[in-house]
Nucleic acid binder design. Structure first.
Lengths: 150, 150
DNA sequence: AGTGAAAAAATATAAGT
DNA sequence: ACTTATATTTTTTCACT
């Protein structure tokens, strides 16, 4: 991982459809060399995958909410984690420091879905207490490590 | 945006390097049709861009922190938002409901950088109060809207 | 909207420095 | 490691249904 790799990563995260030739021009390498570096970055796991950045609003997921969770004392924590992995609305679920045990980030179509989300947590007997925070607007979003963020 | 588009989006978000032919096989369309649908999804902004999912750990950004911010009473809020946009460590910055005004998500190489991050907020006279929560581990991460999350 | 065929472009491979 | 040249695959375009 040297400076060239960083540059390549920066260009790819900005637009992964750039051709190897185009990237090569920017960083001063031939297409084959760029190709080989991307292959290695992918192999070593620095690049996890090529993907698309989607607009949540266009996919009926305009509402962003953060839900703090305190698990029940008798909750099966590994079952909870698996539940989070499988849950279609949960984008992030972090075990955190502080007075809450987990911070969950969800995107839903409407605020009413937050309520059913929490009800479901209760029904599964995971939930002790919770507190929900709604995002009114986002100055920065995307969640990616981006070009100017490396 | 019909079911075929959703399927295509799902496949792309899983692996945006799949060929049009491959996607076509899965959804039952010709490569040209898939191409046309992806073109339209991109044009309408449903697909914002093609990008790469990077491993923060491999890029010296292993530490994930959430910083709750209450702005100073006299803070210039639009200046703060611009500061957030320009800041290299800030992955997300949301204006939120509740007793805090903003929730910021940052990824840093080491926990010590969180301190300098907050000092800088203070130096810019944005910060009233703040509270930092560190992620100890993540059951779900990535931040993308993913295949099974549409 | 979708298809199939042809053209254009991009990627992957291999031989040489 | 990188480059150039070649082979292969993919993407794009277009005439037609």
């Amino acid at each position: 991982m040297n400076s060239l790799d960083h540059q390549i990563i920066g260009l790819l995260s900005e637009d992964a459809k750039r051709s190897l030739a185009d990237i090569g021009q920017h960083v001063g390498l031939s297409p084959s060399s760029v190709n080989e570096r991307i292959r290695r970055l992918t192999e070593t796991g620095t690049i996890r995958r090529f993907t698309v950045d989607l607009d949540p609003g266009k996919l009926d997921r305009s509402t962003l909410a953060f839900v703090w969770i305190a698990l029940r004392d008798d909750a099966d924590e590994s079952a909870f984690r698996q539940y989070a992995v499988d849950h279609p609305l949960i984008l992030e679920c972090h075990h955190v420091t502080g007075s809450w045990s987990y911070l969950i980030k969800i995107r839903v179509g409407a605020i009413t879905e937050v309520e059913s989300f929490i009800s479901d947590l209760k029904a599964h007997r995971f939930l002790g207490r919770s507190e929900t925070v709604i995002a009114l607007s986002s100055a920065v979003d995307g969640g990616f490590l981006r070009k100017n963020r490396l």
